[in-house]
Write a protein that binds this DNA or RNA. Structure first.
Length: 488
RNA sequence: GCGGGCGUAACUCAGUUGGUAGAGUGUCAGCUUCCCAAGCUGGAUGUCGCGGGUUCAAGCCCCGUCGCCCGCUCCA
């Protein structure tokens, strides 16, 4: 993994964000080669997903109405206060912690707690207030006390850790806000709070009827979107794997509820095949089906496509049956009907949604790791990135074998001609062997070399990255040769 | 968030009991070079992550902080 990170920096794939200021945790920048690779991945995905008659594209704004995130469940689920047990290192959500303690025990704890704060009048006052509020709202006073910033710390001291049984081992309760908050308008008024979207999906859901009616689509059909999403992760990890700003490639497929299984299976196959078609090692790809009891609140069925990274298997795409959860919720929260009218059956219903949600950044890293290759050639190490030609940042390098006898002139002509159609690179520095190896590390699949024979018969050699073998072709055929190699 | 490790040139790393920083690779310029990191000559690059402290003197010792990696936790 370290090798990949170091190569990524050395060759201009990925730099740490704000590096000269000491870096910013969990943020990374894509350099000249990185941005090409990333764009190619997104481009391949876009073509695979939207160049078909049953999927439309969309680019929704990153900022959305705050109610979207209430409807989606993110406000509720992304902002739980948590505590850690310092002894056994277990983390608890405050509300789950409360659930783990039985009523009798709670009573005892509250009594001990009250004794403990008798000599602090303001605490006693707050304590009594809490009970009145709990009565009014018909809530557990225990929970309310735990949620109170000043009192919770004292109360936590009275609670034994349900995991290890130790007392007085909890950290103070911390609020985890997994959504980034910001403000609409220059005045930081709470009424104007908006969030940076934690997923692109909601932009698709709220536009479901807009897209459907403007594109005259009928069920089943999908909406695809590529875009940045943001999560205030507790810890970032493993290079690009868990970052706070990342890019998603999502497609939401709207189906009749009775067809959900069929389309779930279809997209499950389809999405795995996409990674394989782009050259990812088959044995390093697998499904990880979510067991029923671990499914997220919105999902009926879910699987991850996982790639075997050097640090272990990790999710690069999720395929979920989200049922009618999202559209129902948006209907409820917005008060607008999101039902679809089926002409054939004359029925009105909320469609089910099959989601395919791939991480662009994670795929980037998976393709990078998968392409990395080392071998020994005549006692020297050769390292190469064996990208599928369609993903390779640079498609071809043009190299004059030596810098004389008119070779540079011919090479430059070839370069100018190819540059219109392909991302190419011209290099005349140093020995040709060194230039080949440089291109290997950048992942360039083809090197076109102009030599003495070129001067006689207008042919060049094309050296292939993986085999290092060369073929000789006519200059006028280079374009079609490359085009052919860039086909599936 | 907790525990551990690390931070010196673009990369990999060395740096003695504290005495004003080195190597290899890469890179750049030139020469040479007819096919796989060849050779020769010359050049450039460091607030030793950042901030503070101890000291006559800190890359080295102490404190804080930021970042990266590993493990745990978390990942609706």
């Amino acid at each position: 993994m370290d090798k990949i990170v170091s190569l990524a920096k050395r060759r201009g794939f990925v730099f740490q964000s704000s590096e000269i200021y000491g870096g910013l945790n969990g943020c990374w920048d894509y350099g000249p080669l990185g941005v090409e690779l990333l764009r190619n991945i997104k481009e391949e995905w876009w073509k695979a997903m939207t160049y078909r008659d049953d999927i439309e594209g969309l680019d929704a704004a990153i900022l959305m109405h705050p109610k979207v995130w209430e409807a989606s469940g993110h406000v509720e689920n992304f902002t739980d206060p948590m505590v850690d047990c310092k002894q056994c290192k277990t983390r608890f959500r405050i509300d789950t912690l409360s659930e783990m303690i039985n009523e009798k025990k709670k009573k005892k704890i509250l009594e001990d707690f009250k004794t403990g704060i008798l000599n602090i009048p303001e605490f006693v006052e707050k304590y009594n207030e809490t009970f009145i509020v709990a009565e009014e709202r018909k809530e557990d006073p225990f929970d309310l006390l735990l949620e109170n910033k000043e009192l919770s710390q004292k109360l936590l001291q009275e609670i034994n850790c349900p995991q290890c049984g130790n007392k007085n081992t909890f950290t103070s309760a911390r609020q985890f806000n997994l959504m980034f908050k910001t403000f609409i308008g220059p005045v930081e008024d709470t009424g104007a709070v908006v969030y940076l979207r934690p997923e692109t999906a909601q932009g698709i859901f709220v536009n479901f009827l807009n897209v459907q009616s403007s594109s005259r689509q009928k069920l089943p059909f999908g909406i695809a979107q590529v875009g940045k999403a943001f999560r205030n992760e507790i810890n970032t990890k493993n290079f690009l794997f868990r970052t706070r700003e990342f890019e998603q490639m999502e497609m939401q497929f709207f189906v009749k509820p009775v067809d959900d299984k069929k389309w779930y299976d279809y997209w499950k196959d389809e999405r795995l095949q996409w990674f394989k078609d782009l050259g990812m090692t088959k044995s390093k790809l697998r499904y990880h089906d979510h067991p029923k009891e671990k499914l997220a609140h919105y999902a009926k069925e879910a699987t991850d496509i996982e790639y075997e990274f050097p640090f272990g298997w990790g999710e690069i795409e999720g395929i979920h049956n989200r049922t009618d959860f999202d559209l129902s919720r948006h209907e409820e929260y917005s008060g607008k009907s999101l039902k679809y009218f089926d002409e054939e059956s004359k029925e009105k219903f909320i469609p089910y949604i099959i989601e395919t949600s791939a991480g662009a950044s994670r795929s980037f890293m998976a393709f990078m790791v998968d392409a990395y290759y080392e071998e020994e050639v005549k006692g020297e190490m050769r390292s190469a990135l064996k990208f599928h030609p369609r993903l390779a940042p640079i498609k071809a390098a043009i190299l004059p074998l030596v810098n004389k006898d008119g070779m540079p002139e011919i090479s430059q002509k070839i370069e100018i001609d190819l540059r219109k159609r392909f991302k190419v690179f011209y290099d005349d520095k140093g020995a040709v062997g060194r230039r080949y190896r440089r291109q290997d590390e950048a992942g360039t699949p083809f090197c076109i070399t102009v030599d003495t024979q070129t001067l006689d018969d207008q042919t060049v050699t094309v050296r292939e990255r993986d085999s290092m073998e060369q073929v000789r072709i006519q200059i006028e055929n280079i374009s079609s040769y490359l085009n052919d190699k860039l086909k599936f």
